[in-house]
Simulated assay, not measured.
Amino acid sequence: MNQEIQNTLEILNKGGLILYPTDTVWGIGCDATNEEAIKKVYELKKRDDSKALISLVSDIRMLQKYVYEIPDAAFDIVELADRPTTIIYDRPINVAKNLIPEDNTLAIRVASDEFCQKLIRQFKRPIISTSANISGMPTPKSFSEIAKEILKGVDYVVNLHREKTNSRPSSIIKIGNDATVKIIRK
């Protein structure tokens, strides 16, 4: 695992794209603070850049560096959720401008996967996590279902957990700074 983290860090630090196993499905990732890298993700996925992307952080402490104000309910959800849960926060900070949609929000998940946590902790910045598919196509349930176009379009494919099957993306909840909570995806 340590060698895979080093290989992946090298690519992320150069503004490259990675294909990696997450706590949910296989994801395309890059540095969430690098506008050029984020453009490459949108191009690879053939996705409209007005559609939001999810970012992963290693822990609550890191989360606090990228959201202006974290609502109290978010702390409980992160701690008590029994499956990976992405929260959409108001007023993100310190990330690439082209990652923030017009409504000034950002979807962030505290990663629960060991590889992701170690990678992000060593990278010291959030990374993008978007499903490894062309926009509009089904999300791959396993590594073997990832399209060749995606495999060829990234700069590095992590060589871990390729046998893992996971068809369930994270839950998504929007928590406004006014304490409103809305379930986007169960």
Rank of each mutant, 00 (worst) to 15 (best):
K14Q: 07
E163T: 13
L12C: 03
P84D: 09
C30A: 12
A81K: 08
N7H: 13
I146Y: 05
P101Q: 10
K40V: 03
F143Q: 08
K124A: 11
V41I: 15
S55G: 14
N177F: 04
R162P: 01
I38A: 01
N13S: 14
D31A: 11
E102H: 10
N94Q: 12
K40I: 09
K39E: 12
K164P: 09
A107E: 06
I184M: 14
Y89F: 14
A74L: 06
I77N: 09
A107Q: 02
K186M: 14
D103H: 12
V57D: 02
T8V: 05
V154L: 11
Q3R: 08
R125A: 11
K152L: 15
I70R: 10
L106T: 03
I11M: 10
P126D: 04
I5T: 01
I88A: 09
N159P: 09
R121V: 03
V25Y: 04
I87E: 08
E102K: 15
Y156C: 07
Q3M: 11
Y156W: 08
S50I: 03
P138Q: 15
E145G: 03
A37Y: 08
Q117G: 14
N177Q: 05
I28H: 03
D103C: 05
R91D: 15
V110M: 02
N7E: 10
D82R: 14
